[in-house]
Design a protein around this nucleic acid. Structure first.
Lengths: 353, 353
DNA sequence: CTGAAAGCGCTTACAG
DNA sequence: CTGAAAGCGCTTACAG
């Protein structure tokens, strides 16, 4: 029947519809059409409605590249990650990306399997003139931070703060979290404590340790012993478990720098040293990742106030994507609750349980 | 001493250096300067050297937005993810991002905590005219795929293929992987097999199941029983473990759709049914994620040929970012080896082990 | 091989 | 409130 020789053999040129097309279609100038997309610009309400209406009909959306050439804003946030083996971060990334999208901000990724290579990745990303950077799951040195700022992209440190305390930061009160862990252990009759330390340059690690140790001493116990795991990984935690054997006095209550370290640590204790958790030693983690709730782990842990932390980040990101200069600041969110599961034993004497 | 009143109080205007600046600096035209950055353009080798040299001295890099306005290429790949709770994907993301960066391709993220919302995320991303999309850890419906292609972004499905078999795909030979698992179990004396199925719409799941079942029958055993977990998650695997109790005949060898399901499944068996793995039942996973090697799991599993899969993806991405039209194709990589750990027992009679 | 000019798709003073 | 014009930072025919 061949009634339809319209088959477009040309290579699907899919020319995007442009502001000119829409203007012609509406019999308006491109200037007017353009204005309809900016809430602050002066344009008749009726005109705006017409434009927006027709735009969505024919599928017009302003080309963000052309926009950014003029506005110097890209609505792009750079997300800098490295250590994605800690499940805390993937869990976070999807949600944060979703939230930012709802605020009209797109995420470009700068990742590096080796943390030292993160600078190169950031460099390429900077080429795209992101309005801001969000640093997750890695350490960004001051030099790199300055480079971002020089390129017009202020940086938000999520969860960890930068070493020099500059830049924007969103983090929970890790000192307080550490204190709570100490209280919990001591309340439950533990009298010999230890802290499993992870990356020494990470503020989270340092602060949790400080809170934990401070509070322990305040409560009249000896300063907790420190076991250096060195990294925020399962493997490092596992090794720390083995290393516990080298301590002169065996602690009966331990706070680990985070959940993934705690999970490795407990395995190390069990497999390597044949110790029982919580029978011989009680262990607390930090973060409350999904895995902490798995039957194989049932880890008692301090939760992070994730929702609040993300909400704060989005607010910050919106401001930075919209405005020019904002005062740098650090946002501190109170720590989440201690989630009791099965890795802390009640050692109180005379307490029937 | 106040010898240095040079403090730049102006708000760090950081005007980016532009092609004009560089041209003026070199006493050349902007056209010539521009050409230096395109290997294929006609320009004296000497001139190119000079330009590139000076460019890197004063920190000039072409503005990709301005470039893309003309070239219609953005060097941006959209990465579509959703289910990041499966550790397989985060492990992958960092490495893939790194590799793509080395090829000069930047990654923009489209994520959604609920898989149904992925379309909206893709929509916003499309605004940035990515040269291609890479789909990971989620299902993209045909409609969304067509939308991407209509917007000029061909899509590469990584690990999973699209339901309709269209688009580009990089995946290992999951049928063969399933067959190997069957062979291993049968070689080790198992005679009653089962498959724990995950998301029914995922090609990985379907193919592994098919290979496993086919081979089992070929070897003369009864068709494996199917336990429906429904999702690629720990929780689904755990529930499947409990559900095993409902089977009329208890299998002694099981292949799970992937590692994270297998880990949950084993826990379910242990905690819920009091069964011993591998004493009562042998279990094999698929992927060989880092967690499979942890002492708490020691999961026997079929490895994915990740390096090859990523390399193939990068090659594809480069082509798509550079050229106009490329024939769609599916790349099949042979499966990785079966990694023997501690979740499969040797049941052969008369074999001293 | 190089340069002057047009133009990519937008926004934004500047007039009216 | 709207339109004509300039210009963002580039690339690419087109001449030479």
């Amino acid at each position: 029947m061949e009634e339809d020789p319209v088959d477009q053999t040309k290579p699907a040129t899919r020319r995007r519809v442009t502001v000119k097309d829409l203007a012609r279609d509406l019999g308006m100038s491109v200037a007017t059409v353009s204005r309809a997309f900016y809430p602050d610009s002066i344009i008749a309400a009726e005109t705006r409605r017409t434009v927006l209406q027709r735009a969505s009909e024919i599928g017009y959306r302003p080309n963000p590249f052309a926009q950014s050439l003029i506005t110097k804003k890209t609505q792009i946030a750079g997300m800098v990650v490295s250590d994605l083996t800690n499940p805390f971060y993937p869990e976070l990334m999807t949600r944060l990306t979703t939230l930012l999208r709802q605020a009209g901000i797109n995420l470009m990724l700068a990742a590096a399997d080796q943390p030292e290579k993160i600078d190169e990745a950031v460099d390429l990303l900077l080429t795209y003139q992101p309005d801001l950077m969000i640093v997750l799951a890695t350490n960004l040195n001051s030099h790199a931070r300055e480079k971002c700022e020089a390129a017009g992209a202020p940086v938000i440190f999520f969860n960890r703060l930068s070493a020099d305390g500059l830049g924007f930061g969103v983090s929970c009160d890790n000192v307080e979290g550490g204190r709570r862990a100490a209280d919990h252990l001591i309340d439950f009759g533990h009298d010999s404590l230890a802290y499993v330390s992870a990356f020494p340059g990470a503020s989270t690690n340092v602060e949790r340790q400080r809170g934990f140790c401070e509070r322990t001493v305040e409560r009249g116990l000896a300063e907790p012993q420190i076991i250096e795991a060195g990294l925020f990984t399962y493997e490092a935690g596992y090794q720390a478990g083995l290393d516990l054997g080298k301590l002169q006095q065996r602690p009966n209550g331990v706070l680990c720098a985070n959940d993934i370290v705690a999970i490795g640590f407990i395995e190390g204790l069990r497999e390597g040293l044949g110790l029982d958790v919580p029978g011989d030693i009680s262990v607390i983690g930090y973060d409350n990742i999904a895995m902490a709730g798995w039957p194989s782990h049932r880890l008692t842990t301090i939760a992070q106030p994730l929702d609040e932390m993300m909400a704060a980040t989005v607010v910050l990101a919106r401001e930075l994507a919209a405005e020019r200069q904002i005062q740098q600041r650090i946002l501190r969110i109170p720590p989440g609750p201690l989630v009791e599961r099965s890795t802390v034993r009640d050692r109180r004497k005379g307490v029937s349980k």
